[in-house]
């Protein structure tokens, strides 16, 4: 009898021990995680503001934004952490900018916002790059949201991004196709709109062409040692031989070309 009880006690102690071992393990994991956790212990609204000693500063100089090549060296966890560091910094900058405007003061170094945004964009593109690589390897597709080239209801070419639905297309009676089937325009109004719109675009292109031609003529008139290859590269749509023959392009010098 006694032995059974003792056995039971032992069993329970061992389980207790195991439990405690587990709890120790989890506690250790927590500690390890806390080591990586870099947020400041003060978690109040003042985290939206800059450090107090920076408030009267007129010039807060910081380094440049993170480049793509630097971010490519970093692990996913690091990128994830860096994203939140940048997000907090951006929130802080927006708050400080707003506060400076409220108090009619100059916000020091507003280019910091652009630097943070550039870094965040770069992080996004690096992550996208990695995900695309994974999906291409595993499924042969990019895994990005699909994009279709369609003609929209007013006859303009558009990039259509399909959305996700729980019912298939033929069952979904509430869905209305927001683009033309096969790109075929059969509405008079759309046809008229396209005609006028094309005319507008055509006249804009023509004007740009005339403007460039005129500009080249003036350049030929002004600069006797003009490099023709550079000119051709800069204005590929202009007929330079024709421009050279015009009266407008004749300068007060003997041309070398």
């Amino acid at each position: 009898m006694n032995t059974v009880i003792i056995k039971n006690i032992f069993r329970s102690t061992t389980t207790l021990c195991m439990r405690s071992q587990k709890s120790i393990n989890t506690a250790a994991a927590c500690i390890v995680k806390r080591d990586f956790h870099t947020t400041k212990p003060t978690q109040d609204l003042m985290e939206f503001f800059d450090a107090k000693k920076n408030w009267p500063e007129t010039n807060i100089r910081v380094g440049r934004a993170w480049k793509l090549d630097e971010l490519r060296l970093k692990s996913n966890t690091d990128l994830h952490k860096l994203w939140y560091v940048l997000l907090k910094e951006r929130n802080m900058l927006y708050t400080m900018e707003h506060e400076c405007n409220e108090r009619v003061r100059l916000f020091p170094n507003p280019e910091r916002i652009d630097k943070v945004e550039e870094s965040m964009n770069n992080i996004e593109s690096v992550i996208r790059e990695r995900n695309i690589a994974y999906y291409k390897l595993e499924t042969g597709e990019t895994g990005e949201r699909p994009v279709k080239d369609v003609i929209n209801l007013i006859g303009m070419p558009e990039k259509y991004q399909p959305s996700e639905y729980d019912t298939p297309k033929f069952m979904n009676t509430r869905w209305v196709r927001p683009y033309l089937k096969h790109g075929f325009i059969n509405s008079l109004a759309v046809k008229k709109f396209r005609r006028l719109y094309n005319e507008k675009i055509h006249s804009e292109v023509r004007k740009a062409h005339n403007r460039d031609f005129n500009h080249v003529q003036h350049l030929l008139k002004r600069f006797p040692n003009l490099d023709m290859d550079t000119l051709k590269a800069e204005y590929p749509n202009v007929d330079i031989e024709k421009a050279k023959r015009t009266k407008k392009s004749r300068g007060h010098f003997m041309p070398t070309y």
Partner: peptide, 22 residues
């Protein structure tokens, strides 16, 4: 206070894994 040090910025922590970011 604000800048990342050059050592931290150039330290390589990336290890290729067959996983997406998420």
């Amino acid at each position: 206070e604000k800048d990342t040090t050059a050592d931290a910025a150039t330290k390589i922590t990336f290890a290729p894994k067959l996983r997406t970011f998420e």
